[in-house]
Amino acid sequence: MHNGGALKLVYTYDGSFEGLLCAVHHAYYEHQVPDEILCEDGLQRDLMACYVAVDTDKTKSDAVYFSIPKRISANALQTAYRVFLSEAPDKATVIYQYLRLGYSLGKKVDYLLDNDWVLRAQKISRYVGTEAHRLAGLLRFSQMTGDIYYAAITPVNNVLELLCVHFADRMPSQPWVICDTGRKTAAVYDTRRWEVMRVDALALPDYAKGEKEYQRLWRGFYNAIGIESRRNEKLRQKLMPKMYHKNMTEFWLD
């Protein structure tokens, strides 16, 4: 299936989901099957490869976007998007291959459990979903002056948007801000809609009155609820990995 000679065919895109969908579009209409799709940022060029830079065009990405639920399944769109939110180095290629199979098989693509691409797409997607679900529990808000609830997260995957969907439903009448301090992005919710923006430095207001007291109460509760004779440090570690501790109230000091 190589397109002319031994050169590897590599598409590059701008790093956005739309850009990636345009690469899918391009391959389809050019009757090409790229060996890899990579993000332009931080690209290391290989001498034995031929590079095609795909432009991002809203009409084309929309066409692909809306065709996925129609021709494959709503589930496939979700899988593709979740893979996109991961940091897997080969994610764009995985999404492309998964969708390519999807276009020929329809919704049956998800039954093709012995295909490496399908399996990998599902695995990464599940991994992203699991992290989002986990953080939906482990994320901690603090009340700031002005009645804004603020939370910081540092997830492995870019799950901020998935969390916004959850918290907008959970606290519809409460303004909140969730900041991914690693990726320097923040989601701001104003009781009507949320928006993700880039933040380089966030000027945080002070804690609201009483905030410290509730944090202390929570730590008190947390420490009182464990049963000493059943102590199981390994299990706790496994269910709540250390990497999440720094943003969690129960591990802060008074």
Binding site: G137, Y222, I225, I227, E228, R230, N232, E233, M248
Partner: peptide, 15 residues
């Protein structure tokens, strides 16, 4: 499906 908010020292889910 339920959400666990924390895990106590005995490894049990705190929800």
């Amino acid at each position: 499906m339920g959400i666990c908010h924390s895990f106590a020292s005995d490894g049990r889910c705190i929800s």
